[in-house]
Write a protein that binds this DNA or RNA. Structure first.
Lengths: 172, 172
DNA sequence: TAACATATGTTAGCCACTAACATCGAGGAG
DNA sequence: CTCCTCGATGTTAGTGGCTAACATATGTTA
């Protein structure tokens, strides 16, 4: 992270990271499948799933998933938020990173869908789930980007709440 | 496209594409910035923007953008749909392609936001726009994926309409 | 005909990433 | 204590995406 922030993501080679970590480049690749994974670890999934599962299943899906994500963010500690902020800034600077993040987000969305899939048996239930989960995740990401752009002024959980509210207002 | 479909995206080298096109690899790179761009051309943007702009600005945002996307898809000809279907299938098979598509989608979303930004001056108007545009674009993509998974059974425009409806039903 | 612009080819090189094999250290079996 | 095994690490060589620098050709304009 230090090297990436100092020199930029693309300008930093994996060899430099390996050198700074006092290991060989091969070792880096054994622990992180790609250079992007050095930035994006994505270990929030279990918490998110737990939050979504324990919510009232009577709520509309968007509220249920969206509020879960917002609440999850609200619980992060200051240092966790700090790391998150740095990651987002990096992400905004390197297109390949942004692409990977979107893919990560998609993976988490898939996990959420899998967790809720069994709740109903309507033929289109999974389709419905995917639509709503996607809307919530992209809203969250957009809120986080706004958070980074405004230099962490507001609380991220609050921004996500607002994003979900906007979505509700603009849906006829 | 032929080589990619025959051998898979990752197994096909740019050199092979160049050879099949009877040009040098360098020429390929001069026309397509990356290997992924050989699959993802993304020239629908102008049509989408036009459709969104000419819609009733009194509609809620999600309906406005979502219906525009659905209508745009409904207007595609059979060969265009065929190409689209092949692209989506390829995309689903190669993670790096999926990542790029999500990035493309984000670029289009940015264009839509830029087109509608001037309509209002509320402080959060752009934020609101981004949230809604994202929801509509991911819903469209999810609908298209479902379309590809069911082997083009339904009409894609219709699926997108349904996706937007679901989003409305599940937003409280 | 000459000058120029544009498209293409060639070569060499960087860097992310992989495969194959060598090495080394910690822990268990005897 | 010794030997063996196994897991983590290093080394080397290579593939393939992508770029830069320079050379060549082809068509256009003066």
């Amino acid at each position: 992270m230090r090297l990436f922030l100092e020199q930029g993501f693309e300008a930093t080679t994996v060899n430099q990271v390996a050198e700074a970590a006092e290991v060989s480049a091969m070792t880096v690749y054994r622990h992180f499948p790609t250079k992007e994974h050095l930035v994006l670890s994505d270990d929030y999934d279990p918490d998110i799933l737990e939050l979504v599962r324990t919510r009232d299943s009577g709520e509309p899906l968007v509220a249920r998933i969206g509020r879960a994500l917002a609440d999850g963010l609200s619980r992060l500690s200051a240092p966790e938020l700090d790391l998150l902020l740095r990651r987002i800034r990096l992400m905004l600077s390197a297109p390949t990173l942004r692409a990977r993040l979107l893919e990560n987000q998609h993976a988490t969305q898939t996990a959420v869908v899998a967790a809720l899939r069994a709740e109903r048996t309507d033929p289109d239930w999974e389709f419905r789930l995917r639509i709503c989960a996607d809307a919530c995740f992209t809203a969250t990401t957009t809120a986080l980007i706004r958070w980074a752009e405004t230099d962490g002024a507001h609380r991220p959980g609050e921004l996500v709440h607002r994003a979900i509210d906007y979505l509700a207002e603009e849906t006829g």
